[in-house]
Structure formats: structure tokens, C-alpha cells
Amino acid sequence: MNGPVEPVARRTVGGEVIEWVVPSARALTLGLEPHPEGGWYRRTWAADAVVATERGDRPAATLIYFLLPPGEASAWHVVTSDELWLWHGPDALALQLGGDGDAPVAGEVVTLGGDEAAGQRAQALVPAGVWQRTLPSEGETLVSCIVSPGFSFDDFTLHALNNP
């Protein structure tokens, strides 16, 4: 990077500014933007095949990069489609599930990472309609998320940006 990096706006789904954040070198290299839930993302693929859902037509599946820098977390959110997380590293990522009720209830924590002997997994499935969030860590983690039927912000509910 040459010179200082300018902050960019993290926005709600509706476009309101949540906060100003400075992208990491990796976020810049991968062309990522701030996600409303926290972290950084970019859609990298959408299936050509289309499926009908209750909320309209969606690609059969979509794929994103999702980067979580050190100390950052994502807020509780729920998606109306299955979401498959694929770990790329370098550090582990703690993914907490929160049930399928009207509001999240802190539950199982799945650790995505490369240390299988310690119980880490390279993949994790968050079923449609299950609340989820990532917890902060000391390191940086890159994952990919496959959503099927494909992701749309119309199918996304954010519970809160600051959660206990």
C-alpha cells in the first residue's frame, strides 16, 4: 500500500452509515467491502440456475469471501437459506449458533480451523433460519460462504450490532 488508507463506510442494508472503518491490506487485495453484520466481504460467484423462493427468484447458490480481521466480530444475524462456511485461514474462527427462535440464544460454538485434533473443522453448516455470529479472535481469518438458495439481503435479518 502506498500512503495512508482512507476509511470506508460500513452501512446498514438500507444504506445508513454505521461506522467508518479502515480496510486491512488483505481486504484491499481481495477487493472486499465492509459487511453490515461486521467483517468484510465480496460476492465471487452466483449460479446461473435460478430457483423460486417465497421472497422471489434467487440464484441456486452464491459464494462470497468473508474476512474477519483481528478483534472484529459479526453481529447476530439469520439467513433464510442454508449457509456452508469453508475455512481458508490463517487463524481459527469461532462461529456461534443461536437457535431458530425469534431472537438468538447463545448456543454451540463451532471452531473453523486447521487443527482437527483440537476439534476444529474446515467446514461448517448453518441451517436456514438459524441465528449465527462470529466471535472476535486475536488473528485474521478468511472463509468462503456458500448460500443455497443464493443470498439476497431481502432474506437477511440483523439482530443487533452490539451484542453481549
Rank of each mutant, 00 (worst) to 15 (best):
G99M: 02
R133N: 10
L93G: 06
G98M: 11
G39H: 07
F66P: 13
V5G: 02
G129Q: 03
E37T: 06
A27M: 01
L30N: 08
G14E: 10
Q96S: 15
L95T: 06
D155C: 02
R11K: 15
P69L: 01
Y65D: 01
P90I: 08
Y41M: 13
G71M: 07
V130Q: 13
G98D: 07
R133Q: 14
E33S: 13
V143N: 02
V78F: 11
E72R: 10
L135Y: 10
G119T: 05
V110C: 09
T80I: 06
P4N: 14
P70G: 08
T141W: 07
P149D: 00
V130N: 12
H88D: 01
V50T: 15
R121H: 00
I18V: 13
R11N: 08
R42K: 11
P23Y: 08
V109Q: 09
W85M: 04
N163C: 07
L125I: 01
G31Q: 03
H88S: 02
W45N: 10
R43C: 02
F66L: 15
G99E: 07
V79A: 08
L28M: 06
W76K: 09
E16I: 03
H159M: 01
V110N: 09
L95G: 04
A49F: 10
T29D: 14
W20T: 12
T80N: 14
G99C: 04
P149H: 03
T134G: 12
R55M: 13
G89T: 04
E72I: 03
E72H: 07
S148Y: 00
L125E: 04
G119N: 04
P136K: 14
L93D: 02
P36V: 06
E6T: 13
P136A: 06
T157L: 14
A46F: 03
E16C: 00
T53A: 04
P127E: 11
E140Y: 01
T29V: 11
G114S: 08
A25C: 08
G56L: 09
T12S: 15
W45T: 06
V50K: 12
A160H: 12
W45L: 11
R42C: 00
A46V: 00
N2H: 15
L142Y: 01
P69T: 06
L68N: 13
L84G: 06
R43A: 04
R121E: 00
P4I: 09
G113F: 10
A47Q: 07
G107L: 05
V21N: 04
F66E: 14
Y41H: 12
